[in-house]
C-alpha cells in the first residue's frame, strides 16, 4: 500500500492505495465522491472524466498513484461558491442536456475543459470534443445545445428537443 496526497476540488486529501487502485476507485470509494461515474470501465464512454492538473482525463484509465501531488477536480467541485449551478450545469438543465443523467458528470467536465481552451466553439468543435463521451439517452443534440448556450452563443437556430 502506498500513501497518496492530492488536492481534490480545492481540499487537501490523502489516503492509502494499492498500486492497481484506479483514480475513479479512490474518488468514489475512499473519498465518497460518487458523482464521477463508471459507465464502461474500458476507456470508451467518458462518464468518469475528471480534471487532473487542469486536463480532462478518464479516471478509470489512470492509477490513483499517478495523481499523487496533483490538483484534481470532479463534478462535485463545479457548482458556484454559493452552491448554485455553474453556467454549464445550468445550461444542461435549461436545455434538457440530460435524461437519465448517467453520462452528465463526464459531459460537464469535458465541456468545461473545452470552454477553457476554446471559449466560443463552433457546433462542429463541440461535437469533435465530445468524441469520447457517450450518451445512451439524449441523442446528443441537447447536450451540444447546452454547451453552445453555456459559451454564451445564440442557440435559437440549433434544432433539437
Amino acid at each position: 500500500m502506498t500513501k497518496v496526497t492530492m488536492t481534490v476540488n480545492g481540499k487537501a486529501v490523502s489516503g492509502t492505495v494499492e498500486g492497481r487502485t484506479l483514480l475513479t476507485s479512490f474518488l468514489r470509494e475512499d473519498l465518497h465522491l460518487t458523482g464521477t461515474h463508471v459507465g464502461c470501465d474500458t476507456s470508451q464512454c467518458g462518464a468518469c472524466v475528471v480534471h487532473v492538473n487542469g486536463k480532462a482525463v478518464k479516471s478509470c484509465t489512470m492509477f490513483a498513484i499517478e495523481a499523487d501531488g496533483a490538483e484534481v477536480s470532479t463534478i462535485e467541485g463545479q457548482a458556484n461558491e454559493d452552491g448554485s449551478l455553474n453556467a454549464i450545469q445550468a445550461a444542461f438543465q435549461e436545455h434538457h442536456g440530460l435524461q437519465c443523467g448517467f453520462c452528465t458528470p463526464g459531459m460537464v467536465m469535458t465541456a468545461a475543459s473545452l470552454l477553457k481552451e476554446n471559449p466560443k466553439p463552433t457546433v462542429d468543435e463541440v461535437r469533435n470534443h465530445l468524441e469520447g463521451n457517450l450518451c445512451r439517452c439524449t441523442g446528443y443534440h441537447n447536450i451540444i445545445k447546452a454547451i453552445m448556450a453555456a459559451s454564451g452563443q445564440d442557440v435559437s437556430a440549433i434544432a433539437a428537443e
Binding site: G46, V49, K55, A56, K58, T61, L114, H129, G132, N133
Partner: peptide, 9 residues
C-alpha cells in the same frame, strides 16, 4: 488520436 481525454494521457 482517440478523443481529448485519451490525448491528455
Amino acid at each position: 488520436i482517440g478523443d481529448p481525454a485519451v490525448r491528455n494521457r
